[in-house]
Design a protein around this nucleic acid. Sequence first.
DNA 1: TGCCTAGAAGTTACCGGTAACAACCGAAAC
DNA 2: GTTTCGGTTGTTACCGGTAACTTCTAGGCA
Lengths: 335, 335
Amino acid sequence: MPRRSSGRVTLQHIAERVGVTKVTVSRALREPHLVSAALRLRIESAIDELGYIPNHSAGALASGRSHSVALLIPSLSNSVFSEIQRGIEEGLGAAGYQVLIGHTGYSILEEERLIDTYLCYGVEALILPGSRHTDHARRLLTRARVPVVETLELTETPLDINVGLDQHEAGRAMTQTFLDQGYRRVGFLGARMDYRAQLRLAGWETAMRQAGLSTERCLTTPHPSSYRLGGEMLASMLERWPDLEGIFCGNDDLAAGALFECQRRRLDVPAQLALAGFNGLDITEATAPPLATVVTPRRRIGDTIATRLLARLKGAPLAPISEDLGFRIRRGGSL
Amino acid sequence: MPRRSSGRVTLQHIAERVGVTKVTVSRALREPHLVSAALRLRIESAIDELGYIPNHSAGALASGRSHSVALLIPSLSNSVFSEIQRGIEEGLGAAGYQVLIGHTGYSILEEERLIDTYLCYGVEALILPGSRHTDHARRLLTRARVPVVETLELTETPLDINVGLDQHEAGRAMTQTFLDQGYRRVGFLGARMDYRAQLRLAGWETAMRQAGLSTERCLTTPHPSSYRLGGEMLASMLERWPDLEGIFCGNDDLAAGALFECQRRRLDVPAQLALAGFNGLDITEATAPPLATVVTPRRRIGDTIATRLLARLKGAPLAPISEDLGFRIRRGGSL
DNA sequence: TGCCTAGAAGTTACCGGTAACAACCGAAAC
DNA sequence: GTTTCGGTTGTTACCGGTAACTTCTAGGCA
């Protein structure tokens, strides 16, 4: 007699209804070819008559496999991740994995908490945004012996699989594009300033210094980036450095916000001020003029992650690797 | 002797290390006040020496509780949901629930699949976008006897908890705002045309008809909405109905895209063409001019869902209810 | 006829926790 | 001194599946 009458239909109920053991029912679901066709049909009809819903916890516990993978992203509202996520989900979904999504809010402490949570859930792999983690998170990942993907930026010392692009080089290249077009007093505008934003900023500094130009025209804030903030910060920068010829914004949101502010001020872009963003989101192609940006291969990142991860999950040995998927500069019309 | 040496540290390992039974260790974790302070300390240090990670599946199986809730959203890239989600996550997170996110891609078939998946995971509640579901999904939900939240739009026949706003009325009210400002030839531009978009369109029709005006200036597409699409569709509409005085766009993305197209055409907004969107996303406040929009109380929707759901999870009986959180019209500068 | 084999279903033990209850122990109460 | 009781820890059974192995049966073949 059951201790708790959960009310839930179990394999046992199906088995009794059909007159077989629950193992046979389980087998009919997992390895149908091992069960005779006639019996399989009876089992299937019992299953949907009674409304059986498998208990994932029980299955995972018994088999030691959860068929799920955790994908951590910095923020749900950051559209940069939606294409990456699509690639991942299509690839892993087809192989029978469920993708569990969590968001870190750009905090490696929260990332640590989520890694812990999802390891409790028994995920078979973890996909993390970035290569910076707390020490404790590293310890958890190492001990768990689970495939790990670090994405977005590249690192010299990948934990396992690392797929992304060289953010510093991308920042440098975009700045160089300004310089190639003859702009000299090029500023940098950044928000949030997570690690990747810092790398882009460093890329800007590198290019400016190499050209013997000043890196003083730089305004950053730890606040979350937004259109509105882009406009406000542009205003501050113009006030402080009225001689600015161009501004490289750390991401597309800021660039769009800056563009809107220019429109309000009837500042001609790019004639009076050139602008560029980073990521190549939809909006950069839609504005008037379209925004210059660094187009990142997000869909390809997602696909690559899925492919490499599946190989690891199928047994490929741990062999830390960094894969650089590059980027493309798009001049748009704002530069 | 273990059948599979999973390598994973279990309660049993901790127990042996400390010299107690695993039940005591389990208790130290779940109900620390029932374990003596000295022992608790020894257990805790053993736990982080050995790096114990609880097995959620085992706990869920034994206790019949998963401490998790599923949140389905139409699309990860739809920023409408990020604030709703924040409210939900804060409320439920504080009460010890983990929120599992899935996205339906605006498809009720995919929603059905996800409902099934998450019921397998044993979620203790489901939060769904909208009130339209497949018959099978309804059957699953009913049989599972799990609290369900339907959100975004309101319905006459909620399955359980329904929190949202009257999309038809909001569409009507925004259209009325055009009319109040003296606009007469007001068109409607819509994409994706999911159920909520249809309700907004219907609201527009209602207002126009009530005012004795034509509802012919309407262009919709099943394609996903985007900035670019907003621009393209605006172009089509202007070509077809050059006499348009204003356009109500089914969402903010389309409205922003339409605004950008106006800027390219040097069409003055609102003097030559008034525009409005729907949702009150950030971008509507940033553009030049700011976009008129229907501001939806997304954060409050999230908070309300969390509150009502927690009450149900704590045992409040099933008593289907619709809660209307209203909306606010913001004229911006584009209308 | 008897042996072998493959296919189909059953047996058993176990995954790693938790609920419910039992047992123990020392101090306060009688 | 015995009873009682609250605070601690242990015992047992079970959650709902799955892996590995065993058993049974019918048919093929020498």
